[in-house]
Design a protein around this nucleic acid. Structure first.
Lengths: 392, 392
DNA sequence: CACCTTTGTTCGGAAATCGACGGAAGTCTC
DNA sequence: GAGACTTCCGTCGATTTCCGAACAAAGGTG
C-alpha cells in the first residue's frame, strides 16, 4: 500500500462532529451527513433530532429536488443564541454582538481608555454588551460566550495579560473572572484580527499572516487554519525585529533599528513632524498622504519597503499563502503595499512567493471585534463542547 | 461556567487511541488505560486482546504490587516489526533500521552522491535496507514503513522533490513509488532532523527550532509538537534571509547578503581561503578552529552573531521554547553558540527569551536518519492506521 | 490464615448502531 | 396525468458495542 500521507482525518460521528459539518456548511441535509460521516442514515436522523432538541439545529425549507424527494435543509439554530466580540484598543472599545454564524446583530464603538484599568473598562464592556443584546433582541441567557481582544500579550489559557506595556493595572488580571457565569476567551488584538480576516475573507487558506501597521507593528499568525500563539503567547511580535541601515533610530524597547521604530505610524508621524508637518498619529500620516503630501507618501512607501524586508524573512521561514495588511496605515495601502510587494518578491525564495498573495485587509476596522466573536463561536461550537451540551 | 480554553482534547477509546497511550508510555497496564480513557475495564481488556491478537502489543512481566494483585505490564510488540530511516545527503547516505520504539537495530553509512539520480540512489537504499533488515533479524515483511530525508524541498503529500537545487534529475520524481508495496514518507532533511531532535531530546517541549549550520543553513520547525511545513513545504528555508551590513556578499541564489552566503560553512571556508588558509568545506573550517586557528575562530563566532541576528527575528515571530543548533559547524558549538546567544538575547523581546533555551544538538549526526525513522513510526502507529489494521 | 486491595475476566443486560422496510415527496416518461 | 423512478427520511427489529456487576486471580497485611 503506497498511501498519501497528510490526508485529513475522517471525521467521527459524535453529535459535535455532526454539528461541525452543519455549521461549516459542509453538509446541509441528513443525506450529506450520512455520506460525510459514514454513519447510517438512521443514526444521523437520531443525531439531528438530538441537536434540534437542544435548540442547536433548525430545519428550514425543503430544498431543491435532484430527481426525488427534496431534502429538508438543516442549519445552525441562530435565533436563541449570541456571542459577543470585544475589541479593546488603547483608546477605543468596539463591540459586536453576533449570532453563531458570525453575522453581526448589533455593534457599537466608544472612546474608552484601556489605561483606566480593568474594573472600569470591563464594567463598561459588561454594560455595553447587555445593551447590545437588548438591541439584538436576545436575552442575557442567550449569550453563549464572549471573546476579547486586548492590546498586549496575554496568556490565552488563563486570560491574563502578561506585562502589557500600554495597559497599566492589567498585568496578570484574570479577565474571564470578571464575567462570572460566562465563558470568556481573551487574546491579543492582532491575533483576533488575523482570525477575523482569515475566517471572513480567506477561509480556505491554511497559512496566513495578518500584519497590523498602526501606531506599532504586529502580526497575527494562522498556521494550519489555527492561531499560532507560541510558547509564551508572544508569537507575532514583529515590531521589534531589526531592520538594516537604521541603527541610529532608537526604540522605546531600548534597542535600536526596530521595525516599528522606523516604520510604525508613530515613527512616521515623528519623522513628518521633524520635516515641519503636523502629525501626531498614524491617522495624521494617512491624512497627509491622502491630501497629496509627497513627503508623507515617500515615507509610507519607504515604510512598506522596510516592512517588506522583515516580511521577506518571515515568508522564507513560515511559507504562508496570504499576507494581509491591516491597521490604520492600510488605508493608504496602494502606497504601503507597493513597497512591501517590491521587497518581498525580490528577497524571498521563488518557491515561497510563487503562490503568495499580499493583499490589503478585506474586513477592515471590524476585524478585531469580529475575530474576537469568532473565537467565542468556535469555542462554543467545538465538538467537545457540543457533546457536553447534548449529553447533558 | 468559567472554563479554561486550550485544554487538551480527552482521548477517545478506539484501539488506535489505546495503542497511542501504550506506545507513548502514558499507560503500561490495563488499569492505567481504563483510568485514562474512561472506558470500562472490561472494554479495555477487549481492546488489548485485539491489539495482542494483531501482534501490536505484548504482555511482559507482571509488575509490582501496590497492595493488591500486581498488574501485567503492556508494551508495544517490537519483535515482529521494523521501520527504516534514511538520511540522504549530498554525498552520503545514512540508514537506520529501528524498532517501533525508535531503538536502532542496525545502521550503516556509505558515501553516495545524490546527484547520481533517483534510480541509482534509491536502488542503493533498497539494497542497504534489505541488508540491514537481515542484520537486525527481521524479515522484509516486517518493514512497516520507511522515512526518507532528502537535501532539498519536497512536496510531502506526494513525496516529490520540488526543484531541488542540489539533486539533479530528482525534480518531481515520485520517490515513494520506487518502493512499491512499502509505505514511504519523504521530507526535507532539516525537517526530519528537527523531528529526530525533538522526539529524542525534547519530547515535552511544544515549540522547537532546529537550525542546521552546514554547507548551507536551514531550519526545521516544530509547532505544537508537529512539523510545520508551510504552504509549499518550503518553511524553514532561512538560508536566504538577508543579514544587515553584508550587501557586497553575493549568493548563489542571485541575491546578496543572504545568511548562508556570509555564515554558512561554504562561505566561511571561502573566507578562510581568501585569508590564505586551506579550507574547502565546513568540516575544514571546524578542523581549523579545533587546531586553534584564531581567524577561523573569529569567523565562526561572527557567523554565530549573524545567525543570531536572524534567529532573533524568528524568536520574536515564532516564540519557540528551544532552539537546537546542529550541522557540521555545531561541532564547535561553544564558539558558534556564544555568538548566537549574545545576539538573540540582546535583540529579542524579554517575554520571548525568558524561557528560551539555545542548545547544541544532543542527538548529533544520526538526527536525520532517526527523525526519518520516527516519521515512519508515527505514521504507522497513528490511531487511524492502527484502527484500520485492527478492524481488518 | 482470614481479610483486604488491586487486577483482570466473564457474562448478562443496556445502549448505540445498523440495515431493511415502508411511507413521503418530488421528477421523469410515455 | 398515471405510473415508474428517484431521493429522502422515519420506524423497527437485529446486531454489535459497551458497561457494570459478579467473580476469579494474585498479591499484601495483621
Amino acid at each position: 500500500m503506497t498511501l498519501t500521507p497528510g490526508e485529513e482525518r475522517p471525521l467521527g460521528g459524535s453529535p459535535g462532529d455532526v454539528l461541525t459539518l452543519i455549521s461549516a456548511g459542509s453538509a446541509t441535509t441528513r443525506s450529506d451527513l450520512a455520506r460525510l460521516t459514514g454513519l447510517a442514515r438512521s443514526t444521523i436522523s437520531q443525531r439531528v433530532d438530538a441537536l434540534i432538541e437542544c435548540g442547536l439545529v433548525q430545519e428550514t425549507v425543503t430544498g431543491e429536488s435532484t430527481g426525488g424527494r427534496p431534502p429538508r435543509q438543516l442549519r445552525l439554530h441562530t435565533d436563541n443564541s449570541a456571542v459577543a466580540g470585544v475589541d479593546l484598543g488603547a483608546t477605543h472599545c468596539r463591540i459586536a454582538v453576533m449570532d453563531l454564524t458570525g453575522r453581526v446583530l448589533a455593534s457599537a464603538e466608544d472612546p474608552l481608555h484601556v489605561a483606566e484599568g480593568p474594573e472600569v473598562v470591563l464594567g463598561h464592556v459588561e454594560e455595553r454588551v447587555n445593551a447590545l443584546l437588548l438591541q439584538a433582541g436576545r436575552s442575557r441567557a442567550a449569550l453563549k460566550a464572549m471573546g476579547i481582544g486586548v492590546p498586549g500579550p496575554v496568556e490565552f489559557a488563563t486570560g491574563r495579560p502578561n506585562n502589557p506595556p500600554i495597559m497599566p493595572g492589567w498585568n496578570d488580571y484574570p479577565i474571564p473572572e470578571f464575567f462570572s457565569g460566562t465563558t470568556v476567551l481573551v487574546d491579543n488584538d492582532v491575533n483576533v484580527m488575523a482570525l477575523g480576516e482569515h475566517r471572513n475573507a480567506f477561509p480556505q487558506r491554511r497559512y496566513l499572516l495578518f500584519v497590523k501597521v498602526g501606531t506599532g507593528i504586529g502580526c497575527g499568525v494562522v498556521a494550519d487554519g489555527r492561531l499560532h500563539r507560541g510558547a509564551q503567547g508572544s508569537a507575532g511580535d514583529i515590531g521589534h525585529i531589526r531592520v538594516s541601515g537604521h541603527d541610529h533610530m532608537g526604540c522605546r524597547c531600548g534597542n535600536s533599528a526596530c521595525l516599528e521604530a522606523v516604520a510604525g505610524g508613530a515613527a512616521l508621524a515623528r519623522q513628518l513632524t521633524d520635516l515641519g508637518f503636523s502629525a501626531e498619529s498614524g491617522a495624521d500620516v494617512v491624512a497627509l498622504v491622502q491630501s497629496g503630501n509627497t513627503q508623507a507618501l515617500r515615507l509610507v512607501r519607504e515604510a512598506g519597503r522596510l516592512i517588506g524586508e522583515v516580511l521577506a524573512s518571515l515568508v522564507n521561514f513560515f511559507n504562508p499563502e496570504v499576507i494581509v495588511i491591516g491597521g490604520v496605515l492600510a488605508r493608504v495601502h496602494e502606497h504601503l503595499l507597493a513597497g512591501i510587494r517590491e521587497t518581498v518578491y525580490r528577497r524571498s525564495l521563488p518557491l515561497a512567493t510563487h503562490h503568495l498573495d499580499i493583499v490589503p485587509s478585506r474586513v477592515g476596522e471590524d476585524a478585531a471585534a469580529l475575530g474576537a466573536g469568532i473565537l467565542a463561536i468556535e469555542h462554543y461550537l467545538s465538538p467537545d463542547n457540543i457533546n457536553r451540551i447534548v449529553n447533558a
